[in-house]
């Protein structure tokens, strides 16, 4: 396989992986209104845990890390996702119950920084700044793939997982549960007045979203075989936010479009472009600026994103059109008619 295909499948992998990450952040922020500025932290937990589940015991590997259970793929990946969810429960119990949106956002961003410092500096956990490497390739013993064939293969595996997770997520967002999430996003006071346990629902949304974060992180770990703190600087959270804001909050297909535009075209493609003569690395450094400008332009000109949120119409929910609706007058017509009939403008 030649180099071009290697690049193409790397892009395909990141497209699907960021689609998964975007779905997770979207259910938290886009559907439920939780401004999770620590999102990349949950991605990292998924990645690290997937790694240490798959690596052998650390003795003699030259790395320091906990566990090292030699679990096969996808068991290690699932444990990574579930650990991210478990972490979400802890965070929610501490922060979500008491804090309003804006304060919660600040607490979460601090949490993200603390988590980063711990992983970066506390070596026995996930090998500190060096991070984990030499993580066993999935199915290595069964398929005997070489480096070249592994990349397209794993991009395909990620595509299948993304499709499955998209199916699950659309079922959830279209269900009454998804509607209740959106009610909380629009006005949590009204939701509570209607008998919804807002904290419980937000907790649910955090758990689901963090599972997606963890799986997305675990797949990155398996794709590259290594993962270290440079891969998840706290600012990375905003790349995922850019994906969902550009693509369209609250729309799963929009998220795929967002992942294509932001992650594939802006973040990863430039790395494969030839360097501008005399300015090595300039293109990569332009990424952040371009994403920032794009984000501002989107919020200004098309705040709903490239693909608007689905409007759940009555007919699409299977309701028959009613022809004989009795009160078919518009409110104003009816009001006028009533005022005329009673002849008295109410004092």
């Amino acid at each position: 396989m030649n180099g071009t295909w290697y690049y193409v499948f790397t892009l395909v992998f990141f497209l699907f992986d960021y689609f998964i990450l975007a779905m997770g952040l979207n259910i938290q922020y886009g559907e439920t209104g939780i401004l999770n500025f620590a999102y990349i932290g949950f991605v990292a937990i998924g990645a690290y845990v997937t790694g240490v589940m798959s690596l052998p015991n650390s003795a003699g590997t030259g790395q320091y890390y906990i566990l090292g259970l030699s679990l096969p793929f996808p068991v290690n990946l699932l444990v990574g996702g579930l650990t991210a969810s478990a972490f979400a429960v802890v965070v929610a119990l501490i922060a979500l119950r008491r804090l309003r949106t804006d304060y919660l956002a600040m607490v979460l961003i601090s949490l993200s920084l603390v988590l980063y410092d711990v992983c970066n500096n506390y070596v026995p956990l996930f090998n500190g700044a060096d991070g984990l490497y030499n993580v066993p390739e999935p199915f290595a013993g069964v398929l005997h793939l070489n480096t070249n064939s592994f990349i397209p293969f794993f991009a395909g595996v990620t595509g299948v997982i993304a499709l499955l997770m998209w199916w699950v997520m659309s079922r959830v967002t279209r269900s009454p549960a998804g509607r209740t999430f959106r009610a909380i996003r629009d006005d949590d006071v009204v939701a509570a007045a209607l008998g919804k346990d807002v904290f419980r629902q937000q907790l649910k949304s955090m758990i689901i979203g963090s599972f997606y974060a963890g799986i997305g992180g675990g797949l990155i770990m398996q794709f590259s075989g290594s993962f270290n703190p440079t891969a998840w600087l706290p600012g990375e959270t905003f790349v995922v936010f850019a994906v969902i804001l550009v693509g369209g909050v609250g729309n799963n297909i929009g998220l795929l479009v967002g992942a294509l535009v932001v992650e594939t075209l802006l973040v990863h493609l430039p790395a494969f472009l030839p360097a501008i003569p005399g300015h090595p690395g300039l293109i990569e450094y332009m990424d952040a600026a371009v994403i920032g400008i794009l984000l501002m332009a989107m919020l200004w000109f098309r705040p709903q994103g490239l693909v608007s949120e689905r409007v759940h119409k009555a007919a699409s929910m299977g309701a028959r059109e009613r022809l004989n609706t009795g009160a078919t007058l518009t409110l104003d017509e009816e009001a006028a008619a009533l005022a005329h009939a009673t002849g008295k403008p109410e004092a």
Binding site: S175, H312, M317
Partner: peptide
């Protein structure tokens, strides 16, 4: 009002004891 929801959805949210709010039921 729940501004991002349709008028019909505003009412549907209010329905009591919805099985579809429990994830595994879905």
């Amino acid at each position: 009002e729940l501004g991002g929801l349709t008028v019909l959805e505003n009412l549907l949210v209010a329905a009591k004891d919805q099985a579809g709010e429990v994830l595994w039921n879905i």
